[in-house]
Design a protein around this nucleic acid. Sequence first.
DNA 1: CGCAAAATGATTGGCGTCTATCAGAAAATG
DNA 2: CATTTTCTGATAGACGCCAATCATTTTGCG
Lengths: 350, 350
Amino acid sequence: MASPTLSDVAQAAGVSYATADRVINNRGNVAQKSIDKVREAVARLGYVRNVAAANLSRKRVYRLAFLIPTGSNAFFRRIRAHILQTADHFKADGIRAQIVDVSAFSAEALRDGIVDLIRRDFDGVAIVGLQSQLLETPLEELRDQGVVVIGLVSDLPQGVRSAYIGIDNIVAGRTAARLTGMAHAGGPGKIQTFVGSMEARDHAERLQGFCDVIAADFPNLTVLPPILTKDDPSELHRATISALSADTRVTALYNVGAGNRGLIDAIGKAAGSRPFCVVHELVGHSKQALTDGHIDLVIDQRPDVEVNRAFAILRALIDDRAPPPLPDLMPTIYVRDNLPAETLNDTMEA
Amino acid sequence: MASPTLSDVAQAAGVSYATADRVINNRGNVAQKSIDKVREAVARLGYVRNVAAANLSRKRVYRLAFLIPTGSNAFFRRIRAHILQTADHFKADGIRAQIVDVSAFSAEALRDGIVDLIRRDFDGVAIVGLQSQLLETPLEELRDQGVVVIGLVSDLPQGVRSAYIGIDNIVAGRTAARLTGMAHAGGPGKIQTFVGSMEARDHAERLQGFCDVIAADFPNLTVLPPILTKDDPSELHRATISALSADTRVTALYNVGAGNRGLIDAIGKAAGSRPFCVVHELVGHSKQALTDGHIDLVIDQRPDVEVNRAFAILRALIDDRAPPPLPDLMPTIYVRDNLPAETLNDTMEA
DNA sequence: CGCAAAATGATTGGCGTCTATCAGAAAATG
DNA sequence: CATTTTCTGATAGACGCCAATCATTTTGCG
């Protein structure tokens, strides 16, 4: 009934513990015949290495770093809170995780942040990345030191990271479009879009996906050229007001980027009926706006799920074993009725 | 830099290892003064018990059972696959999980299944439950043996389980209604609903939530009385055809229960434009129907997430410690654009 | 004060694995 | 065949914690 140990395996295979150990840890200097005997015994007994004992014995400590942009962005505050909370829980499993601040969206700053990591002896790092060649050399250096690197939320140059954890932003845009299209019930419409910056890859991809679906499946709708907002709430506020008051009746608004507070305020103050509104990321104010009926949909990338995955994947990569079965990550649709219970979001509001 | 051990704590507190151990394991026979000293040292050093070492030492084995209804239901096949996969992964952590079959939706059979568990020495069980008083006595007996019991997907009588892991079906129904309402864009409409059985609590709750939202926020829409289908695909097939051909133009279909294959077939064969269609649970055929454009939305309860949670919560309850931070569980909305990548679902199709 | 009760210290033998060492046996080599 | 090379066995000390024992000290109380 009890799980077989490596001693049991050795005995069953008719070899010594030392030989069995040599086999399962690939230490070499073992005859093929012995390897086969041990493998057979492992299979027969259903031996599985006890990771608790293994980690204890080899004093495994996972030192993880999360490179996260600074700034007051509500979304990244959410990410940070999740990381800290998860890190706290995993302390008992020998995992130390810390957040390293990088100034937001500057390739140079990010490169410097990565260079700093090199001397700090981590086992794995998760980075909110950028597509910049500046990062490639330092990331290669990190990797050469045996540090596992993954992209989080926003991808790194593909050659130098072991995994990317984040949603597909084309899918996110397509999803927004599908629902916006549905909400027109076959009638005509004009959709005003807002982007923070067309250089931001996620923004561009979302807009791309959005336009693709509208063009393909909703010929009755037209997508107006995006208004640039720099993710700045006051810019959005202004742009929203002008979109609402334009003669050409806009039937829907879709903000690809951040700064939703401005959009929401503008809508909240506007009189009469409003267009169908879709934004990204569920945070304090977007959630409130859903509840209040100021907006209709929020497409969220579930940073909590992403952080969970990041921890699990980092651990798996460091141990060089298969990650546990984890929920898939995809853009999640919130309406006012399926909002998650209050957890972190409220405390985030401040 | 290295984590403090209990010996370090004892030393820092100026007591012996034995006393420190007595404190952190609540063994009693310790003076308050010593307790305080140890607590202070723990806080000061940031001591966290090494669970790997602890579990190793106490030979912790988590024996878990999942009581799952038998039958060819695609949803439960999905659940089973996830359980087996997760169980396999956690073998290395000293977790043995097995699935125990119960014949579907019979309170008597479920009671017998629970009674069988009593003699089988599990540490925790997750049960796809029913609201039946029949279950209370055997569940109490289980609990008295120190077995942790949680409800999964469908709740148990509340007094006798430690947690429930599943979505709120009222929320699920409300979500379906919100989107169905949106899809009418303010125009008039008639919605045909289908339920498996009004005795099934989840069905009743979904319908309830659905009707509530339509009544409150979409006065232009009417919900037709539900058609009973017993979750039988051929019943649904028939009912769908008649709903589609009725003189009174139906603008939306909402199936609260299972048997979607019949509904999908009927729609696929129908000519011309079809009503807006919403169903529950993403499985092989509902996913295909979304992709093919036969239906518009699938509300899913993410059984993979549920199973993940079940394992984590059971472990936490057995160890009497806080569960790890986990993603919230809520009805998830799928359109054809945000479908998860293929994992289990395909193999499930057979 | 004296005695029982309560509290503490000191210590031990695991748990299953890793890592290392060393002697001895088997196999390959010329 | 002797000699080298390759392989094997036996063993031991960690890792951090648990559970238990036993001797000793401190405390409370009459």
